[in-house]
């Protein structure tokens, strides 16, 4: 596995874009090198036989629980906007979309 190329610099750029994280040139360089090391280690999993294994997530079996459909107390507009970096009146201010 050592030395094998798992991910190219272009792929790192592409995936970072999918994740909406802008990378500097240095970060692209560093991450490409580190990701190759890390993915080489992860590829160890390939040797594990999992043909008939189901992907389970919980150790304790959960059962459906119902509760009364009762409205709780919502946050006030002021509370909800308190942490917004930019607001306009009673709204969050977002960047331009179109």
């Amino acid at each position: 596995m050592k030395g094998e190329k798992h991910i190219s610099r272009e792929e790192v750029e592409h995936v970072a874009w999918l994740a909406r994280i802008e990378l500097s040139e240095e970060e692209k360089e560093l991450y490409t090198q580190q990701f190759n090391q890390i993915l080489a280690y992860f590829s160890k999993l390939a040797e594990l036989e999992t043909e008939d294994v189901p992907p389970e997530l919980h150790v304790v079996n959960l059962v459906n629980v119902c509760r009364e459909d009762k409205a709780g107390k919502p946050l006030s507009v002021e509370e909800a906007l308190k942490n917004a970096p930019k607001r306009r009146g009673e709204y969050f201010e977002a960047p331009r979309i179109l």
């Binding site: 874009w17 994280i21 331009r96």
Partner: peptide, 26 residues
């Protein structure tokens, strides 16, 4: 939106967090 979103995350997160988000996305 996308540029501002990407720049916000680029400056707001540290190196290890970005590493894990990108590898997880992959």
């Amino acid at each position: 939106w996308s540029r501002e979103f990407s720049l916000t995350r680029s400056l707001g997160f540290g190196e290890e967090v970005k590493r894990r988000i990108i590898l997880g996305t992959y």
